[in-house]
């Protein structure tokens, strides 16, 4: 039983990181109808930004994170929206999807060119203390990751549901034309979604890179699993992203341990396919109707 609980906690921590990235998918979809397949690279990029601030400028990790956060908001939030999304959104989703796929390759190769294809170590924001709770050994890092991920998801949920800005963002997601008529500044709301997405990517990088290690292609797996998690949980529900992420993280651990490590990497895909077939709107998502 202790093994099982240990796997569930470790899986929840990993799933929490998937969830933060998945949240990026759901937010952008809700706010602007955008699917961003460069999301994995948007997690990788802040990891290298932090490494740059720490190793070149000598900043401690907290300051390096804050500097990265600011840069991420500028480049991956504002810049991404203005340079990539705005010119292409007027066409169709497929155009934008292809553009983000291209962007992901471009960013990956650019980082490889600048920082080399080597893997780099990355410090953890949490201590490496091992705690024993009820006979279960849990690392402080795992607990910290779960707490941070859950707090962010719940805070975001509260922001979207209980603040005027959050409700305005939801209104834009539901009907842009009606939101415009109601006097909501649609473009500003969409920008907020991109900025939040960039911040989530930076936090995700901070949490996952100490375990995954920093490498130019570290976003491949993460981006894909976050996408699966978003679909599984429901593309139009923020809590769904958390559920999807945690479900994938925990099931990967359980399958890897009790069935075979060889099947571990296929768990997210199988779950994704089951959900797509039996509940296309995702576990917590709602059915959307669109005119075509």
């Amino acid at each position: 039983m202790t093994d099982f609980l240990q796997l569930v906690i470790a899986g929840t921590a990993t799933g929490g990181c998937y969830a933060l990235a998945a949240l990026g998918f759901t937010l952008l979809w809700q706010a602007s109808g955008t699917i961003n397949f460069a999301l994995g690279e948007m997690v990788m990029l802040p990891a290298f930004m932090m490494l740059f601030f720490m190793s070149v400028l000598g900043l401690p990790l907290p300051l390096a994170f804050l500097a990265t956060l600011a840069l991420s908001l500028l480049v991956m939030g504002y810049g991404f929206k203005r340079v990539v999304v705005d010119p292409l959104i007027r066409h169709d989703v497929i155009t934008l999807v292809i553009a983000t796929l291209g962007l992901s390759i471009g960013v990956r190769q650019a980082v490889k060119g600048v920082a080399s294809a080597q893997v780099f170590t990355f410090p953890s924001v949490f201590s490496d203390t091992l705690l024993t709770i009820g006979g279960v050994r849990v690392s402080a890092g795992d607990i910290g990751t779960v707490v941070v991920a859950c707090t962010i998801v719940l805070a975001l949920q509260a922001f979207l549901n209980r603040t005027v800005t959050g409700r305005a963002m939801q209104a834009v997601a539901q009907n842009r034309d009606a939101a415009t008529v109601l006097g909501i500044k649609v473009e500003r709301m969409v920008l907020y979604a991109f900025l939040i997405n960039a911040a989530l990517a930076a936090v995700s990088a901070l949490l996952i890179t100490p375990v995954y290690l920093a490498k130019f292609d570290m976003g491949d797996t993460l981006g894909l699993k976050a996408f699966y998690a978003a679909i599984i949980g429901g593309f139009n529900n923020s809590r769904g992203a958390l559920l999807g992420g945690v479900l994938v993280g925990v099931l990967e651990n359980l399958v890897g341990t009790y069935i075979s490590p060889g099947y571990k990497e296929g768990v997210a895909l199988v779950l994704f396919m089951v959900v797509i077939v039996f509940r296309p709107q995702g576990l917590l998502g709602t059915v959307e109707e669109r005119k075509v």
Partner: peptide
């Protein structure tokens, strides 16, 4: 056995 490029080793450790 583990996969080349494997990221998460929790099941292996358990």
């Amino acid at each position: 056995s583990t996969e080349p490029g494997q990221m998460d080793f929790s099941p292996v450790v358990v």
